[in-house]
Simulated assay, not measured.
Amino acid sequence: MTIQLKIEHLTKKFKSFKALDDINITLNSGEVLGYIGPNGAGKSTTIRSILGILNPTSGKVEIFGQDAFTNAAKIHEKIAYVPGDVYLWPNLTGGETIDLLLKMNNQKHTSLTDDLINDFDLDTSKKNKTYSKGNRQKVALIAAFSTDAEIYIFDEPTSGLDPLNEEIFKKHLKALKKSGKSILLSSHILSEVEEVADRISIIREGKIIETGTLEQMQYLTNTLIEANVKNSPTEIKNIKGITNLVIKNNKVSFQVNADNLNNAINYLTSLGLVSLRSTKPTLEQIFLQYYKMSGDNNE
């Protein structure tokens, strides 16, 4: 597995404001890295640094082993990028725009482009000024997926798309991954990230507060337990690590951290288990828990 993108100790200041604070990120070949955080956390600043638009205050960003800022023009030949807000030439048609975007990146309209137009159900004969936000996103996505790049950067790519087109986006993203491409996906749709990402980085106030696989993050956070037992479970409140405890007759539900999960299960077993259901936290629950642990009461 080859490291395609490496960010080391990246800090970016705007006067006295520190938008990025000593962040470290790697993106490997054939990998989808989910990059999540609320508005203002530093995601867009990170992406602009990767694209060579912003020069780091300190630290470095390397793509294909080259400095992302000083070698931006050369690096961009192997990068496809889709922002969350797409602005297009108003008097060009969607089809003309797709072909122009491809030509600007030394690419050609192929049968894959036609398949993408059909999949996303885009009327390419209409002018861009008549398109909704979702259709403008489709134009950018079709151009990006038609591009033979090494790294694909998606920043809120499905903004404005309906659920059907979100599924089409995920289908083509998975095809890129299968072909060995590297993908950085920044999205507020956490279920989307959860489904496709190999690893996830969570950023808060310019700092990476956690990076890992979903499974690793699930282990570090609470598990939901729902059980029905033969004897009264009231003493479970004395087990450490249990939160959100609800007891109704011989039915009990609670959340428990990984360190105390076995103690809780053993206690329930001693009461005579009738039924037991264990639910791992979703990425959304993990995200909210990490922000709560980090002292952010607004998320």
Rank of each mutant, 00 (worst) to 15 (best):
K127D: 05
G40S: 11
D99R: 15
G241Q: 09
R199P: 11
K126C: 06
T110K: 11
T46F: 11
L271W: 10
A68V: 12
S111C: 02
S201A: 15
L112S: 03
F154Q: 13
D115A: 13
I225Y: 03
T93D: 04
I209W: 03
K74D: 13
S179V: 01
S49V: 06
V229N: 03
A149M: 08
T97W: 07
F69V: 08
T282W: 08
L27Q: 08
A175H: 07
G37P: 00
D85I: 10
L122S: 08
I63D: 04
K108Y: 09
S278N: 06
L88S: 05
R136S: 06
D121M: 02
I208H: 08
D115L: 11
E150Q: 14
T221P: 00
H9L: 00
S179T: 11
P281R: 05
L283A: 09
K133C: 03
S253N: 12
A72W: 06
L161D: 01
A264N: 04
L268E: 04
S253Q: 15
N55H: 12
L245A: 08
I79G: 03
V246L: 09
L112Y: 04
I142K: 03
A19Y: 05
T70F: 09
L224V: 04
Y152S: 07
M217Y: 07
K78F: 04
K240F: 11
I153S: 04
M293T: 12
G134L: 06
E77M: 03
K74N: 13
N263D: 15
K178L: 12
L164C: 00
S132Q: 07
T243W: 03
Q4P: 00
L51E: 01
K129L: 02
N106V: 00
L20E: 07
T97R: 06
Q255I: 00
M217F: 09
Q137R: 10
P281L: 04
G37Q: 00
K171A: 09
S132E: 08
G52Q: 03
I117F: 03
S294H: 14
K133A: 02
I200R: 01
M104L: 15
L176T: 08
I200N: 04
I75M: 06
K230V: 14
V82F: 05
N106T: 01
K138V: 07
L92C: 04
K251Q: 15
Q255T: 13
N231Q: 14
A143W: 01
L261F: 14
K178I: 10
T221Q: 07
G295A: 10
G295Q: 10
S187P: 00
I79F: 02
N222T: 14
G180V: 02
A144P: 06
L273V: 14
G160M: 05
I117K: 08
V86S: 01
F14R: 03
K171Q: 13
H9T: 11
S186C: 15
N238E: 14
A144H: 01
K177C: 13
L268I: 09
N262K: 15
I209G: 05
L224W: 10
I208E: 00
Y131D: 07
T2A: 14
Q216T: 11
N262A: 10
S29R: 15
N222G: 02
K60W: 03
S182A: 15
V32W: 00
G40P: 06
S294Y: 15
T221G: 01
L5C: 12
Q285H: 13
I265A: 06
Q137A: 13
K174A: 12
K126A: 15
L176H: 09
I202W: 01
H188S: 12
Q255V: 01
F64D: 11
L185S: 10
S58M: 08
